[in-house]
Amino acid sequence: MIIKINGKYYKIKKIEKNPNGKYTITTENGKKYEFKNVKIFSEEELK
């Protein structure tokens, strides 16, 4: 799965839903981001 952050695309390693309704997304390079609204892309959609 792929996520778009600030115009760049990252591969997703893990998605966790937090009790506060936000999502914590861990990218393949180990960085964590927290979002309220998340749009996930499949690799097929990006081709």
Rank of each mutant, 00 (worst) to 15 (best):
M1F: 13
M1W: 15
M1H: 07
M1T: 06
M1A: 07
M1D: 04
M1P: 05
M1R: 05
M1G: 08
M1N: 06
M1V: 09
M1K: 08
M1Y: 11
M1Q: 07
M1I: 11
I2C: 14
I2M: 15
I2Q: 06
I2A: 08
I2W: 15
I2K: 06
I2N: 05
I2D: 02
I2G: 03
I3F: 03
I3Q: 00
I3G: 02
I3N: 00
I3R: 01
I3E: 00
I3H: 00
I3L: 08
I3Y: 02
K4C: 15
K4N: 10
K4L: 14
K4Y: 14
K4D: 04
K4V: 14
K4E: 13
K4T: 06
K4I: 14
K4W: 13
K4F: 13
K4G: 06
I5K: 02
I5G: 01
I5Q: 01
I5N: 01
I5C: 08
I5R: 02
I5V: 10
I5W: 06
I5S: 02
I5E: 01
I5Y: 04
I5L: 06
N6D: 11
N6L: 08
N6H: 11
N6T: 03
N6K: 11
N6I: 03
N6S: 08
N6F: 11
G7N: 10
G7C: 08
G7R: 03
G7D: 08
G7H: 04
G7L: 02
G7E: 05
G7S: 05
G7A: 03
G7M: 05
G7I: 02
K8G: 03
K8S: 07
K8E: 09
K8M: 11
K8I: 14
K8N: 07
K8D: 05
K8H: 11
K8R: 12
K8F: 08
K8W: 06
K8A: 08
K8T: 09
K8Y: 08
K8V: 11
Y9E: 05
Y9K: 04
Y9I: 08
Y9C: 13
Y9W: 14
Y9T: 05
Y9S: 05
Y9M: 07
Y9R: 03
Y10H: 11
Y10V: 12
Y10S: 03
Y10M: 13
Y10L: 11
Y10N: 03
Y10I: 12
Y10G: 01
K11V: 09
K11F: 07
K11W: 07
K11Y: 08
K11S: 07
K11C: 08
K11A: 05
K11H: 09
I12A: 03
I12L: 03
I12S: 00
I12P: 01
I12R: 00
I12M: 02
I12V: 14
I12Y: 01
I12N: 00
I12C: 04
I12W: 01
K13H: 13
K13D: 06
K13A: 14
K13M: 13
K13W: 09
K13C: 13
K14L: 13
K14M: 12
K14H: 15
K14W: 11
K14R: 09
K14T: 14
K14C: 11
K14Q: 11
I15P: 00
I15M: 06
I15L: 09
I15K: 01
I15Q: 01
I15S: 01
I15H: 00
I15T: 01
I15D: 00
E16A: 05
E16S: 08
E16M: 06
E16P: 00
E16K: 05
E16C: 11
E16D: 06
E16H: 04
E16N: 03
E16L: 05
K17L: 14
K17N: 05
K17M: 13
K17H: 07
K17C: 13
K17T: 04
K17G: 04
K17Q: 10
K17F: 09
K17R: 12
K17D: 02
K17S: 05
N18D: 08
N18L: 12
N18H: 13
N18V: 03
N18G: 14
N18F: 07
N18Q: 12
N18T: 09
N18I: 03
N18S: 12
N18R: 08
N18W: 09
P19G: 11
P19C: 10
P19D: 11
P19Q: 12
P19A: 12
P19N: 10
P19W: 07
P19H: 10
P19Y: 07
N20E: 09
N20M: 05
N20Y: 05
N20A: 05
N20I: 03
N20K: 05
N20P: 04
N20R: 06
N20H: 05
N20V: 03
N20S: 08
G21W: 01
G21M: 02
G21D: 03
G21N: 04
G21A: 01
G21T: 01
G21Q: 02
G21L: 02
G21H: 02
G21P: 00
K22M: 14
K22Q: 12
K22Y: 15
K22S: 15
K22N: 15
K22I: 15
K22A: 14
K22V: 13
Y23Q: 02
Y23D: 01
Y23I: 14
Y23A: 02
Y23W: 15
Y23V: 11
Y23R: 01
Y23E: 00
Y23F: 14
Y23T: 06
T24D: 04
T24V: 15
T24R: 04
T24F: 07
I25K: 00
I25N: 00
I25C: 02
I25W: 01
I25T: 00
I25P: 00
I25Y: 02
I25L: 05
T26G: 00
T26M: 06
T26N: 02
T26Y: 13
T26R: 00
T26F: 10
T26K: 01
T26E: 10
T27R: 01
T27I: 13
T27F: 15
T27N: 02
T27A: 08
T27C: 12
T27K: 01
T27G: 04
T27V: 12
E28P: 05
E28Y: 11
E28V: 14
E28Q: 12
E28W: 11
E28C: 15
E28H: 12
E28F: 11
E28K: 08
E28S: 12
E28A: 13
N29V: 03
N29A: 08
N29Q: 08
N29E: 12
N29M: 05
N29I: 03
N29L: 06
N29T: 10
N29P: 01
G30C: 03
G30N: 06
G30M: 01
G30P: 00
G30Y: 01
G30I: 00
G30T: 00
G30E: 04
G30A: 01
K31L: 12
K31G: 10
K31N: 10
K31I: 10
K31F: 10
K31Q: 12
K31H: 11
K31R: 10
K31D: 14
K31C: 15
K31T: 11
K31Y: 09
K31W: 10
K31E: 15
K32T: 14
K32P: 01
K32R: 11
K32Q: 13
K32A: 04
K32S: 09
Y33N: 01
Y33Q: 01
Y33D: 00
Y33A: 02
Y33W: 09
Y33V: 06
Y33F: 12
Y33H: 05
Y33C: 09
E34K: 05
E34W: 07
E34M: 08
E34I: 14
E34G: 03
E34T: 14
E34N: 06
E34D: 05
E34Q: 13
F35E: 03
F35S: 06
F35I: 15
F35L: 13
F35G: 04
F35H: 03
F35Y: 07
F35K: 04
F35V: 15
K36R: 10
K36E: 15
K36W: 14
K36I: 12
K36V: 14
K36S: 14
K36G: 13
K36P: 11
K36Q: 13
K36D: 15
N37H: 14
N37K: 12
N37F: 14
N37C: 15
N37I: 10
N37P: 03
V38W: 03
V38N: 04
V38I: 13
V38H: 05
V38P: 15
V38C: 14
V38F: 07
V38Q: 05
K39N: 10
K39V: 15
K39P: 12
K39Y: 10
K39G: 07
K39S: 11
K39M: 14
K39H: 12
K39A: 09
K39L: 14
K39T: 14
I40C: 14
I40G: 09
I40F: 11
I40N: 05
I40Y: 07
I40R: 04
I40A: 06
I40L: 11
I40D: 06
F41R: 06
F41W: 13
F41A: 07
F41S: 06
F41P: 06
F41N: 03
F41Y: 12
F41E: 06
F41G: 05
F41V: 13
F41T: 08
F41I: 14
S42N: 12
S42P: 08
S42Y: 15
S42M: 13
S42W: 15
S42G: 10
S42T: 13
S42A: 08
S42Q: 11
S42H: 11
E43M: 02
E43G: 03
E43I: 03
E43P: 08
E43A: 03
E43T: 03
E43C: 15
E43W: 05
E43V: 03
E43D: 10
E44L: 09
E44R: 04
E44S: 09
E44I: 08
E44W: 01
E44G: 11
E44C: 12
E45N: 09
E45H: 10
E45S: 13
E45W: 04
E45Y: 05
E45C: 15
L46H: 09
L46N: 09
L46W: 07
L46Q: 08
L46T: 08
L46D: 07
L46P: 10
L46R: 07
L46F: 08
L46A: 09
K47V: 13
K47P: 10
K47E: 13
K47N: 12
K47T: 11
K47H: 12
K47Q: 13
K47L: 09
K47C: 15
K47R: 12
